[in-house]
């Protein structure tokens, strides 16, 4: 009789073994083992990145569907944004462009002079990196890593390892590339470090992300010549980040008498959360390709002598204001 009640309450279930299949416990053991094997493979062996790329590419249509409503809202908002505001913005941008052009004119002469002086000294000629303009499509879905996803991928010639900057300074580095998007790990992420230089005294060091919007410069002696307010710029000795990009500003120096090292905390100058556009900088060429690089520099210099062409408002990185290509050159 009890059995009758039981079956009435659960009409879908038959207690027979063969209908239920393997017991939940054996299934659990099997799938746990499988996921642990996959975790080990993914963490240590790098076999699965292809699979991940393929899956993300296959997911792209779904992602488009997911993004559609917010895109519509944005489009409608744009449509109704006041004419007055646009005029004002246009005016401000024109003024800014004009100022930039004036500065650029000086920059080209200074650059030419610099190149000339360096060639006299038999030094290496600094390279202006090319850049791809990208837009942040969303922040990372994993709360543990500081990541943003950009709408440029391997289809737009983005490669893993490229540096990413905005108009204020370095944002981070491309860590994963998918066909239509790529993942930018921010410099504040725990897993990322960046070679820097103190702008004031050219002291070289390496800054490590702390995972909470600050950078740490460890292993420097307690009496090191760094002050609060010092600007950190990329040193360019790693072959990833072009030299001279702003990275962070020193905000706090903690002196612990028990420790031989100073605890130097700095906050990044880039404003990832404030705007969407960012620049993906091309990896600097390695020395081996010295000859072709000099030729491209020559043509670039010719091209930049006349900076009268339209200055795009979004491409205002200090490193490559006139080199930026809004779309992938491809």
């Amino acid at each position: 009789m009890l059995k009758g009640v039981h079956q009435k309450l659960e009409p879908q279930q038959t207690p027979a073994f063969f209908v239920r299949g393997a017991s939940p416990f054996s299934r659990m053991v099997f799938f746990c083992a499988l996921s642990i094997i996959i975790m080990a493979t993914d963490a240590r062996l790098n076999y699965l990145s292809q699979l991940r790329q393929g899956f993300i590419a296959a997911l792209h249509p779904l992602e488009m569907i997911a993004k559609a409503p917010s895109n519509w809202v944005r489009d409608v908002n744009r449509y109704f944004s006041a004419h007055n505001q646009l005029v004002q913005e246009n005016y401000a941008l024109k003024q800014q462009a004009f100022e930039h052009q004036v500065r650029l004119q000086r920059l080209t002469t200074i650059e030419a002079e610099n190149t000339h002086l360096r060639s006299l000294l038999n030094g290496d000629i600094p390279i202006q990196p090319k850049a791809i303009l990208g837009e942040i499509s969303h922040t990372g879905r994993d709360p543990f890593s500081l990541v943003v996803v950009v709408n440029r991928g391997s289809q737009h010639n983005v490669k893993a390892g490229q540096a990413v900057a905005d108009s204020k300074g370095v944002i981070g580095q491309i860590t994963r590339v998918f066909p239509f998007s790529s993942e930018v790990t921010l410099i504040t992420d725990k897993g990322l470090s960046i070679p820097i230089q103190i702008e004031r005294n050219q002291l070289r060091a390496i800054a490590f992300g702390e995972g909470n919007n600050t950078l740490d410069i460890p292993y420097l002696p307690a009496n090191v010549d760094i002050k609060v307010g010092d600007k950190l710029v990329t040193s360019g000795i790693d072959g990833v980040y072009p030299s001279g990009l702003a990275v962070a500003k020193v905000t706090k120096i903690l002196q612990n008498p028990e420790s031989p090292f100073a605890k130097i905390i700095s906050t990044p100058v880039s404003e990832v959360s404030n705007h969407l556009q960012l620049l993906i900088l091309e990896l600097p060429q390695i020395k081996e390709a010295a000859l072709p690089v000099t030729t491209t520099i020559a043509t670039d210099a010719n091209a930049t002598v006349t900076p009268t062409s339209v200055v795009k408002p979004a491409t205002k990185s200090p490193a490559s204001a006139n080199e930026a290509k809004p779309n992938a050159p491809n």
């Binding site: 659990m28 799938f31 746990c32 499988l34 996921s35 642990i36 094997i37 996959i38 975790m39 493979t41 993914d42 963490a43 699965l48 699979l51 991940r52 899956f55 993300i56 997911l59 990372g140 879905r141 994993d142 543990f144 890593s145 990541v147 994963r176 993942e183």
Partner: peptide
């Protein structure tokens, strides 16, 4: 796991358990 870009198998393991 594939969608969030975390280590492959993490969510699979926790969902299974």
């Amino acid at each position: 796991d594939l969608a969030t870009g975390s280590l492959l198998g993490q969510h699979a393991l926790s969902f299974t358990l």
